[in-house]
């Protein structure tokens, strides 16, 4: 059963990767990266059950955290061209 889930997760990860490379716009790619991250979290969890090592779930949790923060950071960077304090860098730019 977990083999079914793992294989289908792998298949959909390949499809999402194809969208990631095909683009065509930046936002398509960010969306694909975010979706890929969600799939990776699920895949790590399923892999933990498949190999009988539930410790993998810790890694999955960590990956979920990093994935969310990473997506927001990328979007913020492309919107403001800065990751730190936005108002300070905006004053510098003016």
């Amino acid at each position: 059963m977990f083999l079914v889930a793992a294989v289908s997760l792998l298949v959909s990860m390949v499809i999402v990767l194809a969208r990631l490379f095909a683009g065509p716009t930046l936002y398509d790619r960010v969306l694909a990266v975010n979706s890929f991250g969600t799939l990776t979290v699920l895949f790590i969890g399923v892999l933990g059950f498949l190999t009988g090592r539930p410790d993998f779930l810790d890694i999955a949790l960590l990956y979920a955290l990093i994935n969310f923060v990473g997506t927001i950071a990328i979007l913020k960077f492309f919107r403001y061209r800065a990751i730190g304090d936005v108002s300070a860098s905006r004053e510098l730019g003016q």
Binding site: M1, V4, A5, S8, V16, L31, L42
Partner: peptide, 27 residues
């Protein structure tokens, strides 16, 4: 079994949608 298999199916459908739909807003 039912939950995991149907979840797998929905995961594949979702990424298929990400690939097939015509533009960004639909994806």
């Amino acid at each position: 079994w039912a939950l995991i298999v149907s979840g797998s199916v929905f995961v594949i459908i979702g990424s298929l949608g990400l690939w097939r739909l015509p533009d960004f807003w639909a994806r």
